[in-house]
Amino acid sequence: MKPDDRVLLGAYGLIHRFGPATALSEVSVELRRGELTALIGPNGSGKSTLLKVTAGILPIQGGVVKLQGKELRSMSSAARASCVTYVGGGIRPEFPLRAREAVGLGSVSRGPSEPAKVQWAMDACGCWGLRERDVASLSGGEQQLVMLARALVQGGRVLLLDESLSKMDLHHQTRSGELLRRLCRDDGYAVGLVAHDLNLAAEWADTALLLNGGRVAGFGPVREVLTSQSLGALYPGASLTVAPSPASGAPKVFFARSR
């Protein structure tokens, strides 16, 4: 096996600007099969922009994105959607839409809704009981479970999650984290997870990408990258200490108020 075969998503030298503001300057990152990568950085550091460019939602202004070796630029929308799945932080539908209908939309670029797959995905995410509810009537965390189920139906092996677990309670967050780990281990997914909750990210991720001001500030195994120094540089206003969790050994962030 060539070393490249494990890279499901590769972004090389990405540049992105919103008017005069630079969101990404020469960001390169590789998401590998079987790995969960946490994208960490302060507000406006380019995490969401990176996900949206690599998911084909924002246009590529500079640099190259490759999905399983193929250039994203040359792929049709439908072909891209079968490789990479993007989930945002929440939805606000203007029209009545049931949870199972929203989940069914995962396969919209392939064809009609696939009821068996919808049930399997909603079961896996623990939201089958919400299937007849209107999406607008669900709580933020419940909506995120529904969106995660939709991502499973879409089925792209690259799964990009933008704050997609942020509103879930600890029970659902844990279940979803375990689900993501299973997808990586058993089904060969490559997951990219943007999270402001550093303890959550550190618990579930193998790898971390630190972004600061649109530049890569660190990339590597979670236990090596998440240190008091690196995080202190990302969040200069916070007084924080990183220490291994007594429960799992994963790095945990402890912060203290300044006097």
Binding site: K52, A55, G56, I57, S76, S77, A78, A79, R80, A81, S82, T85, Y86, V87, G88, I91, R92, P93, E94, F95, L97, A102, L105, G106, V108, S109, G111, Q154
Partner: peptide, 19 residues
Amino acid sequence: RGLDALLLGEEDARALGID
């Protein structure tokens, strides 16, 4: 199919593979 995908917003429709 495209109109259905737009129910979730333009960004999600793009993510779902709609031009």
